[in-house]
Amino acid sequence: MIRVVLADDEALIRVGVRTILSADPGIEVVGEAGTGSALVALVSKERPDVALVDIRMPGGDGLSAIAELRRVSPGTAVAMLTTFGKDDYVVRALGEGASGFLLKAGDPRELIAGVRTVAAGGACLSPKLARRLADRLAREPEPADSAAAATRRLEALSPRERDVLALIGEGLSNAAIARRLHLAEDTVKTHVSSVLTRLDADNRVQAAIAAYQAGLVRG
């Protein structure tokens, strides 16, 4: 059972997210908080597998709480849940140690999948956010040697893995990649795992950035 603590200052949002997560029999919401300080105290007490945290709350926002959450409960993965898709928030949250960044208005299945991913030790980003972040980083000046290095890294991939990587770069989910390439979703999962391993990437965002750097995907 994946134990989740949910933090959002809006009670209606908490009810909605709890309802979505409760649809998965393998996920249990073990506590809720409406402020940053209450969140830290709750996580310290419950030691959940995942803390699903709103980025803006009174009493210490979600971003500023990440470091404290990791201090009081190192085994708890933190995923940011927000209506804000600003790139700076994403970059800062990932830099602070967040394992995921999900939109409140996203697909409920994406929310459940995101919780499961971070609980398993992985990292996830809403496909929409992943694509925009990769676009932003791809527009920044990239040294020629970095681009060449990214191209060399892609040489380790098979043609099918390159196809999968290109679609990761576009921000597609595994299910969407499966539909695009006419493959079973389990097959896509295997390819994605292989791509991450061969690129020495910790998550899909890093893989997408490598694809952009190598020119495999154009913004």
Rank of each mutant, 00 (worst) to 15 (best):
A67E: 15
E68F: 01
L69C: 05
L69Q: 06
L69K: 05
S73D: 07
S73E: 08
S73W: 01
P74C: 10
G75I: 10
A77Q: 02
A77M: 03
A79W: 00
A79G: 07
M80C: 03
M80P: 00
M80V: 13
L81W: 05
F84I: 12
F84M: 10
D87C: 04
D88E: 15
V90G: 03
V90S: 04
V91A: 11
V91W: 05
L94N: 04
G97F: 04
G100E: 03
L102Q: 04
L103F: 11
K104N: 09
K104I: 11
A105Q: 12
D107Y: 04
R109E: 14
E110H: 02
I112Y: 01
A113R: 11
V115P: 02
R116I: 00
V118Q: 00
A119L: 08
A120V: 03
G121A: 07
G121I: 07
G121R: 05
A123N: 08
A123C: 14
P127W: 01
A134V: 12
A134G: 12
A138W: 07
R139C: 10
E140N: 09
E140A: 14
P141E: 14
P143V: 13
A144T: 13
D145C: 13
S146I: 15
A148G: 07
A149N: 11
A150Q: 04
A150H: 06
T151N: 02
R152D: 14
R153W: 09
L154W: 02
E155D: 15
E155M: 11
L157I: 09
P159V: 08
P159G: 08
R160T: 15
R160I: 14
E161P: 02
S173C: 06
N174M: 09
N174Q: 15
A175W: 07
A175V: 10
I177G: 02
R179T: 09
R179K: 14
R180E: 14
H182V: 10
H182S: 14
A184K: 15
V188W: 06
T190Q: 14
T190N: 11
V192G: 02
S193Q: 14
S193M: 09
S194R: 13
